[in-house]
């Protein structure tokens, strides 16, 4: 990752409204963003390219966010994964961290909060 390249972000959330909110906000902040509402499609995209940052919901039909996190970290250990969830529990938070998540953000959140987390993840990627 070089400093003149745009940081790439993948968003996976089965609620279209979340992608609709996050994608333009991140693009406006200078990120290159792809969003998915189906985990299978997001997983397929990961076979084609790597992302610097992945933001994933936890509770979804098909492959859930925890399995997605595991797959991303297995395929690209350096990709920073941010978990967002509407059903937060201590267990899922701890499990996420054990699997190497960068941060765990419970819904609801303001765009500013997630942008701050993405910026921190980006800083970590760039300093690696």
């Amino acid at each position: 990752m070089t400093s003149d390249q745009k940081t790439t972000v993948l968003i996976l959330d089965d609620e279209p409204i979340v992608c609709k909110r996050l994608k333009p906000a991140l693009e406006k902040s200078g990120y290159e963003v792809e969003s998915f509402t189906r985990s299978r499609e997001a997983m397929h995209r990961l076979t084609e390219r790597q992302f610097d940052i992945a933001i994933t919901d936890l509770k979804m039909d098909g492959m859930d966010g925890m399995a997605f996190l595991t797959e991303v970290k297995k395929r690209y250990p350096e990709t920073e994964v941010i978990v967002i969830t509407g059903f937060a529990t201590m267990e899922t938070a701890k499990e996420s961290y054990q699997k190497g998540v960068f941060d765990f953000v419970a819904k609801p959140f303001k765009l500013g909060e997630i942008l701050e987390v993405v910026k921190k993840a980006e800083a970590k990627r760039r300093s690696a």
Binding site: E15, I17, V18, R21, G86, F87, A88, T89, A106, K107, P108
Partner: peptide, 14 residues
């Protein structure tokens, strides 16, 4: 609002 639905979700879960 989406935020209010998410707030209910969290409280139900907890």
């Amino acid at each position: 609002s989406q935020e209010s639905l998410e707030m209910i979700n969290q409280l139900l879960t907890i």
